[in-house]
Design a protein around this nucleic acid. Structure first.
Length: 215
DNA sequence: GGTGTGATCGTA
DNA sequence: ACGATCACACCA
């Protein structure tokens, strides 16, 4: 297996996001190797996206998003959770893709140890903060290189779904976030977080994947 | 299946 | 103050 090359990330976040579905996220540590298949993501398009941490310009927290593509942007939220993004953009426009869910592939014993609350294996990585907890991704991993660093993204031959599920993004209040269908997921996948697991673009009533609002 | 709520703290 | 969340309690 080869890591995804740098050029993979040097595209618009709305192109990279659905192309991340089916890829494997691997973290090798002394504790052991843990890996999962990405099945749910959300695009955050920095300069045009009020919901993006990068919308109001660079700060200490979001600095990584303003750097080169193919690095990991990790942030702390709700006073207790970590979330991980893939920096993906052209022309340094500070866009990123939030990794929201994965299917556990390797190191299940380590994941269960880190997530004792998870009753079923399908809940080990079925949410953005669950995923980082299971994979052991916290503060020190902010800014690591996904091509050469301790956390890498691979193409193991599993193609992204021909027709990904699509919906509005989760957990946002700000205006645009409720109208843009920038969440992508593998249809009928039990490890996808939340209730819209089975919904596809057609079922959502959308005619334009990127921009159309719906009731 | 669905909704409502407390936990907990860095960031702006 | 508030959040790109989680887990659990409760109702259906």
């Amino acid at each position: 297996m080869k890591p995804l090359p740098r050029v993979f990330y040097g595209r618009d976040a709305l192109v990279v996001a659905p192309d991340l579905l089916g890829r494997t996220l691997v973290h090798e540590t002394a504790e052991g190797t843990v890996a999962g298949r990405i099945v749910e993501v959300e695009a955050y398009c920095g300069p045009i996206d009020p919901a993006s941490h990068a919308y109001r310009g660079p700060t200490r927290r979001n600095a990584v998003m303003f750097g080169p593509a193919g690095h990991l942007y990790v942030y702390f939220t709700y006073g207790m959770h970590w979330c991980a993004n893939v920096v993906a953009h052209r022309d340094g426009d500070a866009s990123a893709v939030l990794l929201r869910a994965a299917v556990p592939l390797e190191g299940l014993d380590v994941m269960r140890r880190r997530r004792v609350r998870a009753r079923r294996d399908r809940d080990l990585c079925s949410g953005p903060a669950k995923l980082t907890q299971a994979l052991g991704i916290t503060r020190p991993y902010d800014g690591v290189d996904l091509v050469r660093g301790p956390v890498r993204l691979y193409d193991d031959g599993t193609p992204p779904p021909h027709t990904p599920g699509i919906s509005t993004r989760v957990g946002l209040r700000v205006g645009l976030g409720d109208e843009l269908l920038w969440r992508y997921f593998v249809p009928d996948e039990v490890c996808v977080s939340g209730p819209a697991r089975r919904r596809t673009i057609a079922e959502a009533g959308a005619t334009d994947a990127a921009t159309v609002a719906r009731s």
